[in-house]
Design a protein around this nucleic acid. Structure first.
Lengths: 210, 210
DNA sequence: AGTCATCTTGACCCGCTGGTCAACTTACGG
DNA sequence: CCGTAAGTTGACCAGCGGGTCAAGATGACT
């Protein structure tokens, strides 16, 4: 690789990192090129696809953040505290950082490294939910899939209302958490669980409409 | 107005009603014209703006549905039952009918009749929340603004995951409701209320991104 | 310095949206 | 039945996004 190409790749990575973080993973590639000060042709040249760029620029940071939150949650003595910490922190991360929100919502199936990081994070979530169940703190009918939907809802709400009402999502998250304690499960759910396939499809299509 | 124009207007209204209901209020106007079997020029001719078309085609049905849910909720003896009925039904309406979801989310400020219907519905919501508060069933720190955000979250989630997991939103709504009972308010909220201005801005910008 | 592979550029393609308007067609009253 | 006002049409404008590629520029090696 020639030195100028190297430099341009670096400029593009920097611009992409900024824009992804500011506006999410769907920012126009041409805009990234513009901010980097190179032609968009060069971007296509050096990275080929959006996914490749994401994988180089977002994956490590996102994986690090997600791992950190998961581990911190598991390191807390109390299982319920760990669970609330996890939910709150992750919601905050989503609200703060659109790139992470998009990662959590799990589209971009072609970004391989990203997907593995995402899977690892899901594992942590499963552990955290399980531990809370075992401690008898989390209502038993709350599943991992429900958590995924909750994060999806939070991501969408935070993105849609984030600028106008920066902590709108926060109260919703708090209300939800209060509804997830064991004591609340007196009132049985009427809606049945979605299948794993449904969860997967739902997440994959998160960004398609609206 | 000439008879053929009348007929075309009718065809356009019918097509618009269908498409709005199927896909929400942002469907391309050209697509409405296509389904109606007329040129898009004619649509602009007869209605001028999207808002005008919405006002003619959506307002009455949406207003009727919203009023009905509100009145039904208030007619229930038990204040808490009324509240849950209202939340559940309205969430269901949003999930079932993208047009109504868009109405509830309150964009399209130029559709005058729609906005007044929307305001009336907000009034009913306020009553329902108040009554639940007075009955001591609803946690005291839950406000009207929170309800608006909850509906926004539900609309976004239902639209994003509706096809893949048609009742994903339902469980979220159920968990939320369980968190809204008075007993749950032991755990005080840390996030402060959004200002009315924030709520307004947040709703106005709901459809802009993502 | 000269040469050639590598790299960059920006014009160009596609499809999608909203929106306008001159030229054509048609309904309807006299 | 015919003239004219009313209505319709589709080509056209502009803007957005993704994506390609021939032509030109430039880094690097001899």
């Amino acid at each position: 690789m020639r030195a100028d190409a190297q430099r341009n790749a670096e400029k593009l990575r920097a611009a992409a990192a900024e824009l992804f973080q500011e506006r999410g993973l769907q920012v126009p590639l041409k805009e990234i090129a513009r901010r980097a000060g190179v032609s968009h042709g060069t971007l296509y040249n050096l990275f080929g696809t959006r996914e490749a760029l994401i994988d180089e620029v977002v994956t490590d940071r996102a994986a690090h953040l997600l791992d950190q939150v998961g581990q911190q949650a598991l390191s807390l003595e109390d299982a319920w505290e760990g669970f609330t910490y996890y939910v709150e922190k992750l919601c905050e991360l989503q609200a703060t950082d659109p790139a992470v929100a998009d990662v959590v919502s799990g589209r971009y199936p072609n970004a391989k490294r990203l997907m593995t990081a995402c899977a690892r994070s899901m594992g942590a979530a499963r552990q955290i939910v399980e531990r809370a169940h075992e401690a008898g703190a989390l209502r038993p009918d709350f599943t991992n899939a429900d958590l995924v939907f909750a994060f999806a809802a939070n991501a969408l709400l935070a993105r849609a209302t984030g600028e106008a009402a920066p902590s709108g999502w926060r109260r919703q998250a708090a209300f939800l958490l209060d509804g997830l304690r064991t004591e609340s499960s007196r009132h049985p759910l009427s809606a049945s669980q979605p299948t794993p396939q449904q969860v997967h499809d739902a997440m994959a299509s998160l960004g398609d409409k609206a």
